[in-house]
Amino acid sequence: MGMSRILRNALSAAAMAAALMSPVAASAQANYPAKAIELMVAFAPGGGVDLFGRTVAKVLTEEKIVNQRIQVFNKPGAGGELGMAEMAGPRKNDNHSLSAFALHVIYTPLTLGTPNSYKTLTPIAKIFSEYQMMVVRTESPIKSLKDVEAALRKDIGSLRFGGASLGNSDHIVVSKFAQLLGGDPTKVTYIAYSGGESNPAILGGHVDVGMGGLDLMDLVKAGKMRALAISSDKRLGGDFKDIPTFVEQGYDVVNQNWRGIFGPPGMSAEVVKYWRDAFTKMVETKSWKAELEKNQWSNSLETDTFVASLDREYDSSKKLLGQLGLLK
């Protein structure tokens, strides 16, 4: 990598120098991107982040917002750390590399003790958010959030919760809920599942209360599950208009699982601006809105304020994960 990095650094340094010297700095941006963009997904194909990355690439190309090919590739491993390391290492200063991430840029360094985080990347934009749903199977005696509260107040460990891995959004929502009732969140009976494994466990009654993404709605509509609450701050529309939020029911639990685009460290300010403009344009297009609708995503575009909200989230997550005994 040595030679090529030196070469690349020299080239970008030359480009920067040229941009600084030239009277019209905008001209440097005018011919950006000069070659194909490589968009890294730090997770395996088939997951939520993969779908996000590929959809963004598709819409940007189809709507002709970006005139270069966007090549998506996967670099999975260690909760996104291997991908972050590639961005912070070999791809440093590379203006033609992007990466798609979710909460992991905050959680992975905290729960695994790995060196890279959003602080070693260039945050470009938060694009959309997903929320969590609390469900029970139809046969369950639990009818509402009040029933869950009653059971937990009697014995904090009496209900079996099932959802994605520990420290994940599902677990965070359950923990926040337990804390709100004055219980110790580490005493909650929480069974961690990976991928969609928790769905059969919920349907089969092997857990009492299930947590999951909004795609559980298909099972709710089919009459197999009952939705108790959604972790959004406001009530959602469409299919979800009949499902109350935690807040509406008097429990201050809000959690969003966002997806965002990051550049490697050292990405030039002009290029960051280019992409922020591109994403601002993209979320207004019809085809992007159709994707949101189809995938049950909620628009939550943030560009200039992204870094500040990441900092806030980092601090609050650190506190909560500490209480859960998950900090490394």
Binding site: M1, M3, S4, L7, E38, Q71, V72, F73
Partner: peptide, 12 residues
Amino acid sequence: LLQPLPNGILAP
């Protein structure tokens, strides 16, 4: 297959 492989010193 659009799977990038390392180009190394031949990158240019």
